[in-house]
Amino acid sequence: MNRSELQDAIDRHGEDLSAWPLADRDRALEFLAREPESRSLFQDAAALRTALRDQLVIRAPAGLADRIVRAALGSNPAPTSETSRA
């Protein structure tokens, strides 16, 4: 593994090494033993995740779930191939 592969793995799996697939984790740990300064990639990813989490508060509009349920209960199901032949 090299630095760019480590960055790619962090992008795919996140900054928590314990959540990584075992093979990727082992390769990352071997690389980090050789290049300990690359640990900063994990710190950067954690900082980015925290910044995004703190900035992105997305809330559904009030009553959205009720409108979806009402629409689903009031709509006719789409015809299936079996019902359209009848």
Rank of each mutant, 00 (worst) to 15 (best):
N76H: 15
R53P: 05
A28P: 01
V69H: 05
L64C: 06
I68E: 02
D24H: 10
G63A: 04
P21G: 01
F42H: 05
A60L: 11
R49Q: 14
D26W: 13
A71F: 04
A47N: 14
E30P: 02
R67G: 00
S75A: 15
D24N: 08
R70H: 08
R59Y: 03
D24Q: 09
L56A: 10
L48E: 15
E35Y: 09
P61N: 08
E35G: 03
G63R: 06
A33N: 05
P61L: 10
G63I: 05
F42G: 05
G74L: 06
R67A: 03
S40A: 14
A65E: 07
W20V: 02
A23N: 12
A51R: 15
R25V: 00
L73D: 08
S38R: 03
N76Q: 15
A71I: 06
A65G: 02
G74D: 07
A28R: 04
R25I: 00
D44K: 13
G63F: 01
L48M: 14
R67H: 06
T50V: 12
D44T: 13
A19W: 00
F31I: 03
P36C: 01
F42I: 06
R67N: 02
D54G: 14
A46H: 08
R67P: 01
A60G: 02
L41P: 00
L56S: 07
R34V: 05
E35W: 06
R59D: 05
L22V: 12
A19D: 07
L29R: 13
L22T: 10
D24Y: 03
E30T: 12
T50M: 14
A71T: 13
A33I: 01
L52N: 12
R53A: 15
P21W: 00
A47C: 09
E30G: 11
L32D: 02
P36L: 00
L32H: 04
I58T: 07
A60K: 06
A47S: 15
R70Y: 01
D66I: 11
P36N: 00
R27N: 08
R53V: 05
A51T: 13
A23Q: 13
L41H: 06
P36A: 01
R49Y: 13
A60H: 06
L32I: 04
G74M: 06
P61R: 12
A33S: 10
S40D: 12
R59I: 11
L73A: 11
G63T: 10
Q43D: 11
G63D: 04
A45D: 01
R49L: 12
G74R: 15
A23F: 09
E37R: 14
T50C: 10
L48D: 15
